[in-house]
Simulated scan of single mutants.
Amino acid sequence: MVNKVTVESLTYEQLAKVFDHAILKPEQTTQDVITGCELAKKYDAKSVCVKPCDVKQASDLLSGSRVLVGTVISFPHGNSPTAAKIAEALQTVADGAIELDVVLNIGHLKSGRVQACQDEIKAVIDACHAKNPDVVFKIIFENAYLTKEEIVQACQLSVAAGAHFVKTSTGFASSGATLDDIALMRANVPDHIEVKASGGIKTLDQVVDLLNQGATRCGSSGTDKILDEFKQRRGL
């Protein structure tokens, strides 16, 4: 977004379509998935992001709606071997997921195994695109564990592997999305690659600030509260 984003400059739909509504807490139940999917439909979010075991349920619940089904792969640490990541990703695509947030292998990146991380992500993307070329991939870095140099490396390898988004965090580390990290990521991917902020996003002003730094999507479990705040401040 070239012009500065403000609460006043956004329409409700523009803001709603920024959100991937997260239903990812380990204790969340099948009833929580129902509640979360109904919430996402009511607020017209871009997508839900559910645990892999809940993709089929979410896909059934959201059939015919404008809300996409997303999930996470090798979540939250990225430690699964490549074959397991591929198998998990393929299963979620078969179950109806169209957006996959894949955690890169954090330990391997920090070990300097940049090419191995790139090859692994590419293998997951290629396997899924052979089944459905429309699947969108967001690569989760978990910036809380990375240096600035490693974040730049993660950006570069994600782009080279064919990802559509780079993403800050899982929401399960010691910190989540920061304005500095969003700016760094935006500066180190081409214009056609989007940036997703995730982790600790709870207020409308926070979302606006993230958009102004270059984020185009936000993962949050507080989608309804933020959008209600927007409607209240705009008098909608």
Results as ranks from 00 to 15, higher is better:
37 C>V: 07
70 G>C: 04
83 A>R: 14
161 A>H: 06
167 K>G: 01
22 A>Y: 02
144 A>L: 10
20 D>E: 14
95 D>I: 13
81 P>M: 05
171 G>Q: 05
142 E>G: 10
198 S>R: 06
144 A>M: 12
133 P>T: 09
130 A>S: 14
217 R>M: 00
47 S>N: 08
43 Y>M: 14
214 G>I: 05
43 Y>Q: 12
190 P>F: 05
158 S>P: 13
140 I>F: 04
9 S>G: 12
172 F>E: 04
208 V>I: 15
91 Q>M: 13
74 S>F: 03
34 I>Y: 13
221 S>D: 04
4 K>F: 10
232 Q>M: 11
229 E>F: 08
196 K>D: 00
175 S>I: 12
49 C>G: 03
204 L>M: 06
115 Q>H: 14
201 I>E: 00
90 L>E: 14
91 Q>W: 06
70 G>N: 04
235 G>S: 10
19 F>S: 01
151 I>Q: 09
118 Q>G: 00
184 L>M: 12
36 G>K: 07
146 L>D: 02
171 G>K: 11
68 L>K: 15
93 V>C: 06
207 V>L: 08
214 G>S: 07
165 F>C: 02
213 Q>Y: 13
49 C>I: 14
235 G>Q: 14
135 V>A: 02
22 A>F: 01
59 S>P: 03
155 C>L: 12
154 A>Q: 10
150 E>K: 12
85 K>N: 02
160 A>S: 14
